[in-house]
Design a protein around this nucleic acid. Structure first.
Lengths: 354, 354
DNA sequence: ATGAAAGCGCTAACAC
DNA sequence: GTGTTAGCGCTTTCAT
C-alpha cells in the first residue's frame, strides 16, 4: 500500500547489522546455513518492523508473477461463478492467485484483457468463450505455452492448446434421450442465438438423437430469440429471452409436450413466461434445462437439467495450468479433457400422459 | 508470460538507435518533445517487435500498482457477484484492475488475503464482512488510508474508514411496514444465525417497527437455524437452512400469516420447503425476502423483497477508493455513504384475507 | 531534443 | 557463514 514508507529487507539488514542477502535468505526459509542467533535476530526484527515482502521486486527479478489470468464472459452468471470458484480453489491451494476479467462475451474486451494480463506478467492464462474472430488472440493462443482453454473448444482447429471442456454433444444426447424415455416425441427447442460452438454442439446433439429415434426435427419447433447484448452482464438477459420465447411458443399454440431450453437461465425465463400465462410446468408442458446452475435446485419447480460440473472444470483447468507453470521444461503434447455430463432429475419434466 | 524472451524498451532503443529514456517517453504518450521522425520509428518498432510493457518494472519504480484489492465472502453468492460486478466496472473504467479474494467468511482467510494484497502492492482495498475479532486486521484498517469498507459498518467504532453501506435498519423497517400495510400482524422471522452486524440491524429494525405498531414480537415466532459453514461456498448453505426453517415452522403449526426471511436465498429455501409440504406461497403464507438478488425476479413466484443496490454499492465504493488513490495529498475526513433500500414488489406477499 | 545514469526491492552468483 | 554486487524493466532527474 502507498505512502507510509514500507519496510524493505534493506531496512532489516540495517537494523540487524547484516546484509540484504542474508535477510532474504532467512526470510525465504531457503535451505542456507545461517547462524541461529542471526537468524533469530532477523526474524524478530522483521516481525517488529512489520515487514511485508514486496512481490513486485521478487517478480521483477524472477520474471514471472504467481498470478493466473482468467478471462470469462461474466462473473454474475452462476455458471461461471462456479467455474471461477473452482479456479480460485485450485490456485490458492497451490500458492497462486487468480486475476479475473469479465469479457462480457465481447471479442475486443477478450483480447484487451489478455493483453492486460500479459502486461502483468501472469504465469499462465485460463480463458473461456474465446471469440473465434480475433486473429491476434488466436495467434497468441497458438504461440503461448501456458494457456488452458475451458468450456468449449475453439472453432479453429489449428490451435492445439490444452483444453478442459464439456462434452456438449453427449450432454445434449443425454437430455434428449431422457425426454424420449419420458414419452415426449414432440419437443420444442428454445434458445438464444446458436452462435458459440458449445451451442451448435448442443443443437446438433439434439437433432441427431431425435433422428436416431426416427423423428425428424420440425424446424417450426425451433424458437430462437436474440436479445440485447448490452444487458448481458445483468444476468437478466437470458431470462428475458426465455420469457419472450415462451410467449412465442404460446402464441403459436405449439403442440409440443416438452421444451428443451438452451440453458437453465433461459429455462427459468420460459417457466416464468408459462406460469404467467397460466400454463403449468410440468403438468401442461415439461421443461428441460441445461447446465445445472445451483439456483436450479432452489426454484419452484426444481429444474430437471443436465449437470455440467463447472466447479470441477475450473479446478481441473487450474491444476493443469499450474502443473505446466511449475514444470517449465516438461513439454508434453496438449491434452483435451472432456467432462462427462450427468442428469439432475428433478421436477420440471413429467412423463407424458397417454 | 514466461520463457519466450520478452521485448523490453531497451530492445526497442537498440533497434531504433535511441535510448530507453526516449522510448519510455514516446510509449507513455507523455507530453514531451520528441522529433516526429524518431517518434514514428519507435512506435513502428514497438509494433513490429510486439512489445508488451512490463507492469512489474513500472510498478516497482513508482511504488504502487494499479490493482485494487477486493475481499468479499464469496463470488458465488449472487449478492456479492453483483457487488463485484459494480467494482469491476468502476475499476476498469478508470484504468485499475480489481483482484478478488473470497474469504468464505473466515476471519483467518480475510486477514491472510489482506496481507497477500499488500504484498502485491495494491493501490487500495475494498473489503466486506470484516470479521470483528481479528485485531491485526482492525489495526491495519485504522492505519491505512486507501481502504473502503462495504456492506456493513464495523462493530468496532474506533475504526473510521470510509464506508459504503446499506441502511439495514431502514430496509427492515420498510419491509415490516409493508407487511403491516398488507394486513399481516402475526409475522414470523426466519433466519440463519444473527451474528453479523448487518443481521442484528435487520432484526432490530423488524422488532422496533412491530413495537411501533403496538405489536410485541413473540419470540416463539423467531426461528433460527445454524448450518454448516463448510458448505458456505456452494451457495446451498442458506437455501438448506431455509428449507429446515420451513419444516420447523410447519411442525410448530405456526399461525403466522407471513414470514420475514433474513435474505432471498433463505426465502427461496423457505418457499421450497413450503411448496414441498403442499403449502402455497402466497395463498397460504406470504414470504418476504431481503436483498433482491437477480434470481428473485426469476423464480416462481417472483419474490417480493427489499432491493439493496449491490451493484451500485460496488461501483460507488470503487469510485470513492480510486478518488482517494488518485489524489494522495487530499485528506478529507472519512465518509459513510448510506444506501437507501427500495421495495421490489412482486408476488410472494399477498394481502391478508379477512 | 536526446541520452546517461541512478534506483525502486529483491535474488543469486560470486567473493571472502 | 556472511557480505558485496549486479541486474530484472522501467521512469526520471540531470546533463548535454
Amino acid at each position: 500500500m502507498p505512502k507510509k514508507q514500507r519496510i524493505t529487507i534493506t531496512d532489516i539488514a540495517r537494523a540487524t547489522g547484516s546484509s540484504p542477502a542474508t535477510v532474504s535468505r532467512v526470510l525465504n526459509q531457503i535451505d542456507y546455513p545461517v547462524t541461529p542467533a542471526l537468524k533469530n535476530k532477523i526474524l524478530t526484527a522483521a516481525k517488529e518492523l512489520h515487514y511485508t515482502p514486496n512481490m513486485l521486486g521478487r517478480m521483477l527479478k524472477s520474471g514471472v508473477s504467481n498470478d493466473i489470468g482468467v478471462v470469462v464472459p461474466s462473473l454474475q452468471n452462476p455458471f461461471y461463478a462456479e467455474t471461477v470458484a473452482g479456479i480460485e480453489r485450485a490456485c490458492r491451494q497451490r500458492g497462486y492467485s487468480p486475476i479475473f476479467c469479465s469479457s462480457e462475451n465481447k471479442p475486443d474486451k477478450e483480447w484487451e484483457y489478455v493483453e492486460l494480463l500479459r502486461q502483468k506478467c501472469v504465469a499462465g492464462l485460463i480463458i473461456s468463450a474465446v471469440n473465434e474472430g480475433n486473429d491476434d488472440l488466436l495467434q497468441f493462443l497458438s504461440e503461448e505455452r501456458n494457456v488452458v482453454l475451458i468450456e468449449q473448444p475453439l472453432q479453429n482447429p489449428l490451435c492445439d492448446c490444452d483444453m478442459v471442456v464439456f462434452d456438449y454433444y453427449a450432454a445434449s444426447e443425454m437430455a434428449t434421450q431422457y425426454l424420449l424415455r419420458k414419452g415426449h416425441t414432440d419437443i420444442a427447442y428454445l434458445s438464444t442465438p446458436i452462435t458459440r460452438r458449445s451451442r451448435q454442439l448442443r443443437y446438433s446433439g439434439f437433432c441427431d438423437t431425435l433422428a436416431g429415434a426416427g423423428i425428424t426435427f420440425d424446424e417450426s419447433r425451433l424458437y430462437v430469440k436474440s436479445a440485447d447484448l448490452d444487458t448481458y452482464s445483468d444476468g437478466l438477459y437470458e431470462f428475458n429471452a426465455g420469457r419472450a420465447l415462451a410467449e412465442d411458443f404460446l402464441r403459436d399454440k405449439c403442440p409440443a409436450t416438452a421444451v428443451f431450453a438452451i440453458n437453465d437461465i433461459v429455462a427459468l425465463g420460459v417457466i416464468s413466461g408459462f406460469t404467467e400465462a397460466g400454463f403449468r410446468v410440468p403438468q401442461d408442458v415439461s421443461v428441460m434445462g441445461f447446465d445445472d446452475i445451483n439456483f436450479s435446485a432452489m426454484c419452484t419447480p426444481p429444474l430437471t437439467t443436465i449437470r455440467q460440473p463447472s466447479f470441477t472444470m475450473g479446478k481441473i483447468a487450474a491444476d493443469l495450468l499450474i502443473d505446466k507453470v511449475d514444470n517449465p521444461d516438461r513439454n508434453d503434447s496438449s491434452t483435451c479433457t472432456l467432462l462427462k455430463p450427468t442428469i439432475a432429475e428433478r421436477s420440471s419434466v413429467q412423463t407424458v400422459q397417454p
